[in-house]
Amino acid sequence: MKRLATVAPAVCVLSATGCGGWQSALDPQSRGAAEIANLWWIMFWTTGVLATLVIAGLLFAVYRARRAATADAGGTVQDRERRFIFLAGAAVPALLLVSFVALSVRTGASVSEPPGDPGLRVEVTGHMFWWEIHYPGYGVTTANELHIPAGIPIEVRVTSADVIHSFWVPQLAPGKVDMIPGRTNRIWIMADEPGRYRGQCTEFCGVQHALMSLLVVASPEEEFQAWLAERAVPEAGSDPLSLRGREIFGEAGCAACHGIRGVTVPEFSGSPGPDLTHLAGRETLGALTVENSRENLTAWILNPHHFKPGVRMPPTSLDGDDVSALVHYLESLR
């Protein structure tokens, strides 16, 4: 299978250079995020100038009062002061606020709707502490890495299987939306250009809230369709070691939480662990915790808490050969 991008995210994730800002709200890559960034700059300059003036006024007042011979609070002074306080404190902010409320409503209405019919609908379900991703109509279920076509709006329907999470891809979406059990919320995302974008859970969801991140890969339409078509047909190795690995997958209890299409019970959506049907096609393990390599996968299976303490997957006590077989099998799942 062809890799869609040249930069492995784990390299990004684990190196101090190279990808700074790929989760930045001030580097918008879609209309929704851009309009909100504009709103911010308008508010920043308006209130920034006003705040500077007020603080300057305060400092000047202090300077004046330090030099004054005596305090002056006679009747006429107090009347004048009251007028000043009322005008400066009520009238000016009132004008400002009316325009801010108007801007808030206008921008809010504008970014709430996608710029055209959504070209694709995706369902994302929050779990402790990973993302289940489902492409309805295509029979594709994956996890933690959301592939989308670039240049067209995507409707994302979010909910949660356990506690409240929040879906946030700052560069692509008009903000974030909470994933609440029992409710389905909608948000649209769009990537103007193909590329790799990062999102993260923003509602505290338990011990590993910190390491619940999301990779969004936007690719040209044809490339995305090809990716989707590949995912529609599960692939697995059929050599003896893979078959042995598949047996271990069942015997060791992996299947109690993880689904593999064609192997475990079909409708396994909502399982406690990520669907592994296309595990080998994923770039990271543990929702962007570590790069998906043979060594990391082996270590993860033996003790995921080494990478992500408190994660719900328990350590396993398989012997070396069994783990090798299991990893060999998992690495054949594309």
């Binding site: 911010w40 809010g108 974030k176 939306v177 923003t202």
Partner: peptide, 12 residues
């Protein structure tokens, strides 16, 4: 307090 801006920075 501006709704869309809050959508972006909420819980950050």
């Amino acid at each position: 307090a501006a709704v869309p801006f809050n959508w972006q920075v909420h819980d950050t």
